[in-house]
Design a protein around this nucleic acid. Structure first.
Lengths: 358, 358
DNA sequence: CTGAAAGCGCTTACAG
DNA sequence: CTGAAAGCGCTTACAG
């Protein structure tokens, strides 16, 4: 009474996917050998491998991930664990990670969480244990939290950290070289004739703020310029704090002709403060930000800003994470370049009356 | 020579997690009964259930997800399949979905893809089949693609669509009522005395553009206002197209006093066009957008815009998706409200000389 | 280089 | 209401 004949070599019924057994029967080998072919174990005869590959194609077989995960005691999932307030950052990092995962047959599980939460560590522990992650990727600021790193080590969960500084061994790090971008901004401003320059830092607890600030000051020093302490202030990486610091700097007896804010949110806050004080932008004040958010190209005047290749950084993190797992499936790991770049727009210009840059 | 005594009731060795067998032994029942307790099957004696619960607590047992996935032939993963250019939208939807998934023990796998890609359907098929998703959530514009819906049905994959219109049965839909927000914007502009009003639509292929436009026109009509056809234009939901349409509208012999753009990117483009034409904003032109991007509060003048509760929409989608799966674990499904709201800022003001609103 | 057996940790199907 | 057996589809450990 069944339309489909019961055949032990081909799976029957709708929704039935072929298994490793079907492939083994069709190729005339044991399932263990099929398993070896799937897992690219070298010690399989050329002719046998070809028979198996043909059978796999003929049946349209794809190994069941759940079964492999159970037997391997590890899933084919990579976790992105983050506490980052910037949607653009998060989405671009996800895209970069997926660029690498897709071809390797891994998927991305996202796990936003809160640094402040008392349950942070328990939360991450539960996530990693339940999912038996193949690995975790940690963007800043979570990448700077050594408690989390210690936890991942304890759980035996591989990880890669993304941070402005090399906080870990190279295999477990993507270092973003923020200091290079900040230095480029400094040099550019000096070349435009600016001498009285101000810096709006982020919270000192953020590695990125320290590294960017350091890069900026060093580059200025190389040009023989030191910052007036009154021109070295810190906000909270937020728009509102940018407004506040902008007012503080522009209210100085001898206000700066240029302000470098260590992220775009604060730079746009500075812009707002300048406008509230009736300044003509960019004629009376040059402003440079960091991050190159989409917003930077939309505000008026368009914001000159340092761009980090977030997507490439995510890609690199994923490649480093999976390199030891997938082995030969990966080319000699051609890692993308992740150097920052200054994107010139209208918010920063040459100081009126300045010499043209050398 | 082993420090840890081998005991069949407690797992030994580091990294060894207790299994259902350990719980069964400790509670003095079969593993099947433990399974019943885990899965909240009703037919378990009260005393037995308590013994099992105690054993679970004592051992710190959590069921192995990989094993359950294999036996259930379904994972505990929800897929978010999208092709949405707005990072803010994507991140907020992810957060909303996770608000619901976390407490239920499910995780979120993100799957961005491209509508244009010829491999779109194969790509989605592979994703859904390999992961054996518990379900998929589709935000616009993918939610409007009936080919994808047909595919998911064929694969037996549960789904919930998020869209401006009710495109599916209520259990599989989160309808965002965009027309209500557009109507609110229309009424507000009219109340401020505006009569010559323009509309910048998005692509007609987007459901959201049609629904928002419809809501806007209807509300104007109720106040006895019809749009001059020259004031009804369409962009591409991009900043650049907003600039272009802004110039077209402001170049009319009798330009509008207010422009409603169906998303913020275009509204900010219109703002740019107005500035390029030397208009004084908002005095000479009121502008209203839709989406309430973070940028809306940062541009100058701040953009009045319609906000959609994206996070709540994601939450609602996830709750609807899992309701039939988790059953009683869910309260009588107290679904959040997902009505849009007009956020008043500085970019739109009363027409000079207009009567104060009723 | 290849394979038969046992196992990963759960659930389904069937009894009782 | 509870359980012993078989099974989900793979891999590990051990042989040969």
């Amino acid at each position: 009474m069944t339309d489909v004949p019961d055949n032990e070599h081909t799976p029957s019924g709708p929704g039935k996917r072929p298994t490793i057994n079907d492939v083994a029967h069709l190729a005339g080998v044991s399932k263990k050998t099929v398993s070896r072919v799937i897992n690219r174990v070298a010690t399989v005869g050329e002719d046998v491998r070809e028979r198996v590959d043909n059978a796999i194609c003929a049946l349209g077989f794809t190994p069941n991930l759940q079964a492999r995960s159970l037997a391997f005691r590890r899933s084919f999932l990579v976790g992105l664990i983050y506490d980052n307030p910037s949607p653009t950052y998060v989405v671009n990092m996800q895209l970069g990670v997926l660029d690498a995962l897709g071809p390797l047959g891994f998927e991305l599980v996202v796990h936003p969480c809160s640094r402040e939460a008392p349950s942070l560590l328990d939360d991450i522990r539960g996530f990693v244990e339940r999912q038996r992650l193949a690995g975790a990727i940690l963007p800043p600021p979570l990448s700077e939290d050594e408690r989390i790193i210690a936890l991942l080590r304890e759980l035996g969960c591989r990880y890669v950290r993304v941070a402005a500084l090399a906080l870990d061994e190279p295999e477990a790090m993507v270092t973003t070289n923020d200091q290079l971008g900040a230095a480029e901004a400094a040099r550019w401003l000096v070349d435009q004739g600016h001498r009285r320059i101000a810096l709006v830092r982020g919270p000192s607890s953020f590695c990125s703020s320290e590294v960017r600030g350091q890069g900026f000051l060093s580059a200025l020093a190389e040009r023989g310029i030191t910052l007036d302490p009154a021109c070295d202030v810190a906000g909270a990486y937020t728009f509102e704090s940018g407004v506040e610091m902008g007012h503080r700097l522009l209210g100085l007896a001898d206000p700066p002709t240029a302000i470098f804010a260590l992220n775009d949110d604060m730079a746009i806050g500075v812009m707002q403060a300048a406008r509230e004080r009736g300044l003509d932008l960019p004629a009376q004040l040059s402003i440079v930000g960091f991050d190159d958010l989409p917003m930077a190209a939309r505000v008026w005047p368009n914001l000159t800003s340092v761009r980090l290749p977030i997507r490439e950084m995510g890609n690199m993190a994923a490649l480093k994470l999976l390199a030891p797992i997938v082995g030969d499936a990966l080319e000699p790991l051609s890692l993308p370049d992740v150097r920052p770049a200054l994107v010139l727009r209208q918010s920063a210009i040459a100081l009126p009356g300045a010499e043209p840059p050398r």
